[in-house]
Design a binder for these strands. Structure first.
Length: 455
RNA sequence: GUGGGUGUAGCUCAGCUGGUAGAGCAUCUGGUUGUGGUCCAGAGGGUCGCGGGUUCGAGUCCCGUCACUCACCCCA
């Protein structure tokens, strides 16, 4: 094929979409920094052994190889070589853990950072699932210990950050692993992970399917019923605590988990609103990995099928160098997962395809320097301007701007004077490039949100 | 990795039981030698994903392959 085909799972946006994405990232960054999170960027590649620690060999990691690598180097003939091989990072948490260990002596704890970067996963792409995508992470990590109130803070920061984004309303779903583990232990469950795995499938296979799995995991019928009742508890405030108590299960972990979840829900509720709602949702378990306490997930209204667009939680040992362990709590927003489907459905776009606010028309090629001075005068005052590409008929020059959604065309007169036309209304006024300014809302491309699917 | 679906113009698609490739939109040009969008006229653009097979003849039927896509798995 003469024309290259797109690579599945490696999305590339058009300029207008990229401008939207950049504004979203800028917005996140603004919120994160206002809460004191420091920016870092970690390298794209990590030793394979680092990426796959804890025997997580099922992760679909992209392996990196030099074209001229030696045979032994390429094949990874022994364990040492394999560990030395490089892979593209699968998330931002593992590289961050490595970074914390590496720089522990130079960082001050508790250390709070944000990180917005691409990550790579070799899984089969689907809507909202990519092989190369952007994540925005915040984490707070302590040396030795990390007070619980940071769990509350993480929920608050992300609630505020998400509320500022031009996306459909979101629901932050909160739960606590101690709560559900304590509950299962109180019920006498022996294989707690199996129970969690079963309950986690509630959305997919329904209550009856989950019951079968629970019975298979060794639970008695009454205990299975109790698990399903627990998983059915969803409240917008801390009233979930009474409903859990009403189930009559006793365990110390359970009580601790309830107390923690109450604190997170109450704390986040202060910052919630129409754009981001808060729920205590006791079916949320978050896979089986390193989470130990608070867990977060987020669903987007009308796009619930995408799954969670922002999730994370508490992990007792983010990193450990043997002598010290570093507990942390963090959450990750899926920038590409959220924006991609909205772009595809035409629900999110930019008011124009380029940053340009004004095209300076070019009456004849010899006037290019004069026109360039007009553009420079506008630019000096923060108004993005470009000179028309050729001295075509003015009709064509106007069309050049129109095609790109550029709102203004400047027809030069003497020096910096001229007349400027709003090509949407057709209104044209005399102006001077030394002091004319567009309306505030036209200065930069705006994000346009469409409520329903458009075309 | 497993299973289904789909590959024809830049985009959306038509193309009958095999008979020499079409439409709409978009693009470009002109009507309109300095103020666009409407309208009219015209033009460019396709190894029908790729390879093989059946046939006098394949976009069409068969096999393979690749890509895209949906679901499972997993997850942002």
């Amino acid at each position: 094929m003469a024309r290259p085909a797109p690579l599945s799972g490696f999305p590339e946006w058009l300029p207008g979409q990229r401008m939207v994405e950049q504004q979203v990232i800028d917005s996140l960054r603004g919120t994160f920094e206002s809460w004191g999170f420091a920016p870092i960027e970690t390298r794209a590649a990590e030793p394979l052994g680092e990426l796959l620690r804890k025997g997580e060999i099922d992760k679909e990691v992209y392996v990196l190889r030099r074209l001229h690598a030696e045979e032994s180097e390429a094949a990874g003939t022994d364990a040492t070589e394999a560990a030395r091989q490089l892979g593209l990072h699968f998330d931002l948490t593992v590289p961050f853990a490595r970074y914390v260990l590496e720089n522990a002596g130079k960082l001050q704890f508790p250390f709070r950072r944000y990180q917005v970067q691409k990550v790579w996963r070799g899984e089969r792409p689907q809507e909202g699932r990519y092989r190369e995508f952007c994540q925005a992470d915040i984490d707070i990590v302590g040396a030795g210990e990390l007070p619980f109130h940071h769990d509350v803070e993480i929920a608050q920061v992300m609630t505020e950050a998400l509320a500022a984004l031009p996306v459909p309303p979101l629901t932050l779903q909160l739960n606590n692993r101690r709560l559900i583990e304590g509950f299962y232990l109180g019920l006498g469950a022996e294989d707690v992970p199996a129970v969690m795995r079963a309950v986690d499938k509630l959305d997919k296979i329904g209550p009856d399917g989950v019951r079968d799995l629970l019975l298979a995991a060794g639970l008695k019928d009454g205990a299975a019923t109790a698990c399903l009742e627990l998983a059915g508890i969803v409240t917008a405030d801390s009233s979930f605590a009474d409903r859990v108590a009403a189930l009559g299960v006793e365990h110390e972990l359970l009580n601790q988990g309830i107390a923690e979840l109450v604190a997170v829900v109450d704390g986040a509720a202060d910052l919630a609103g129409d754009r981001v709602r808060i729920t205590a949702d006791l079916r949320i378990a978050r896979g089986l990995d390193y989470y130990t306490g608070t867990v977060y997930e987020t669903r987007m209204e009308s796009l619930e099928h995408l799954g969670s667009v922002c999730s994370g939680g508490r992990y007792e040992s983010l990193a450990s160098d043997g002598a010290h362990s570093y507990p942390g709590v963090g959450i990750s927003f899926g920038v590409t997962r959220t924006l991609g489907p909205l772009f595809a459905r035409g629900r999110l776009s930019a008011s124009r395809d380029v940053p340009t606010c004004v095209v300076v028309a070019l009456p004849e090629e010899a006037m290019r320097p004069a026109c360039a001075r007009v553009a420079a005068a506008l630019r000096r005052r923060g108004i993005a301007a470009e000179v028309a590409p050729s001295a075509a008929r003015f009709g064509k020059q106007i069309r050049y701007a129109d095609r790109r959604g550029i709102p203004f065309v400047w027809f030069p007169g003497e020096g910096l004077s001229g007349s400027v036309k709003d090509i949407r209304s057709g209104e044209q006024v005399e102006a001077d490039a030394a002091d004319w300014a567009p309306p505030e809302q036209d200065l930069r491309p705006r994000i346009v949100v469409t409520d329903s699917d458009g075309d």
